[in-house]
Structures are given as C-alpha cells and as structure tokens.
C-alpha cells in the first residue's frame, strides 16, 4: 500500500476533500474541505446539529461519507488504489477498514467504555485482540497511560464505579493505547458535571503539548482559545470560517460565528 510517490514532509496528516453526507434528503455535510498538519490541534465549534459529530464519524468511517474522501497519512480511508485500472479506487473490505481505523483514536461524548471489563481490560482489549500485543506488555503500557491520565490506582475498577470525569479519562487512555497518529474528540466534556470538566481538559492539554494531532469538537471556548492552533467554525454542514483562536473567537468575520459566540461566551 505504498503511496510514497506523492508524499512529502509538508503534506498534511489529514486531508478532507469535499466531504458530503446525507441522511435521506437531509444533507448534513455540504462539502467539507480541511487540511490538518501533523501535531496540529484543531477545535471545531458550531451550534448543535451543524454536523460536527457526523464530520468526526466520517473521518474514521464509522459513518461512510456520501461522497468525498478522507486522506490520513496518504491513505485514502475506506479505499485502496485499484491495481488493474489506474485512477480507480476500490472500496475496502471491512477487515482492511478496521486496520486503517487503528491510526485514529476516538473519544465519545458518552465515554462508551465497555462496562463488562475493568479499566485495565478496557485499555488492553484492542491492543491485545487487534495488534496481538503480549498480555504483560499491554498491561504495562496501560498502567503507564493510566498514570498519564491520573488514574493509576483505579486499574481494577469497573467503569460503573467511576465518576464521569474518570470514565472519560480512561476512554482517552483506551484510545491512546492503540498509538494513534490522530485523536478525534467529540464533545468530551459535554456529559460531565462542571467540576469534573477541568481534569479531562487538563489531560487533553497535556496531550496537545506532547505534539499529538487532535481534532476536538467542543463548546469549551476557553480550552479552544488556550490550546487550539486553529479554530474551525461550522454551521449547517459547512465550514463558515477558520483561523487562529484569537482571530475566530475574538474577532469573528461572519455574522453566524458572532451570533454563535455571543450565545456560548
């Protein structure tokens, strides 16, 4: 699957090309173009229903875009170049798509931890099953990651015994255990009690500082202002404007951005 012919060091890690997604006659994404460099932290803002979650889910193909392409690390997600006819893309088999998804970690609004597994099992499950990491190695790595998110002592707890904030930090550790090149966060703090939001944002900030590439859908304007390299404002399935946080948040150019920010700030 070598595509190095077009790869150069300045190529973005993630390239979204004219992503469109419709549910029936409802067009949720109307042609999204976006490039994200390696190590960049991009925060996506926008009103509820504007298609932010759908966009994230299209990036890792949990949802298949109706048209357009997602290119991560020079691989077209969900497709491979056809060997027989040049210029044609062939849809991937499910197992191959699963392999591609390993390069992208995802953190969900409602955590989606596996309730029947302990914290440790949650984190080691995919590395062991999918990447065949030895049990002891997976365990060591998991404890390391739990240390990073400040929950080393909760390794043997079940998710149901943790607070929302703790669960979300475990979910972050679980995603990191697959060593993703890119992390997708879908409103990771929206389901949390206000006093638990800080711990989760703190962990995310730490990851950003370590140079992880992150796409974060959030309503935490403070976080976006402080951590994001770039802020993207979406409305009605389109990118309305984007730029450095101070430009988009403090000096928005579009009426819709201003209207949204005046509501959340």
């Amino acid at each position: 699957m070598s595509t190095t012919d077009t790869a150069t060091s300045t190529d973005p890690l993630v390239r979204l090309e004219k992503i469109r997604k419709s549910y029936g006659s409802n067009e949720v994404l109307r042609g999204i173009d976006l490039k994200i460099a390696s190590g960049e932290v991009v925060c996506i803002l926008g009103p509820s229903g504007s298609g932010k979650s759908t966009l994230l889910r299209c990036i890792n193909h949990i949802e298949k875009p109706s048209s357009g392409f997602v290119i991560v690390d020079e691989e077209v997600i969900g497709f491979r170049k056809d060997a027989r006819s040049a210029g044609a893309l062939r849809e991937l088999k499910e197992a191959e798509l699963a392999r591609q998804r390993r390069t992208m970690g995802m953190v969900f609004q409602r955590f989606n931890l596996f309730p029947h597994m302990t914290v440790l099992e949650n984190i080691t499950h995919a590395p062991r099953l999918v990447r065949h990491v030895a049990s002891r190695k997976a365990r060591e790595r998991a404890l390391e990651l739990l240390d990073t998110v400040g929950l080393k002592d909760r390794a043997s707890a079940y998710p149901g015994q943790l607070s929302g904030g703790q669960q979300q930090r475990v979910a972050i550790a679980r995603a990191l255990a697959m060593d993703p090149a890119l992390m997708l966060f879908d409103e990771p703090t929206s389901a949390l009690d206000p006093e638990l939001v800080g711990d989760v944002l703190e962990v995310m900030k730490k990851l950003a500082q370590q140079g992880l590439t992150m796409i974060v859908v959030t309503h935490e304007i403070g976080f976006a202002r402080e951590v994001a390299d770039r802020v993207v404002f979406m409305d009605n399935g389109e990118i309305i404007e984007q730029g450095p946080p101070h430009a988009v948040i403090d000096d928005p150019q579009h009426e819709r951005t201003r209207a949204f920010l005046s509501r959340v700030l």
Binding site: N60, I62, A98, R101, G105, F114, V130, R174, A175
Partner: peptide, 10 residues
C-alpha cells in the same frame, strides 16, 4: 462504535 473506532472488526 467504540469497538470499531479501536480497530475491531464487526
């Protein structure tokens, strides 16, 4: 969805 996002097959 969480399982698939982690790279598990269906």
């Amino acid at each position: 969805e969480a399982a698939k996002a982690l790279g598990l097959t269906g």
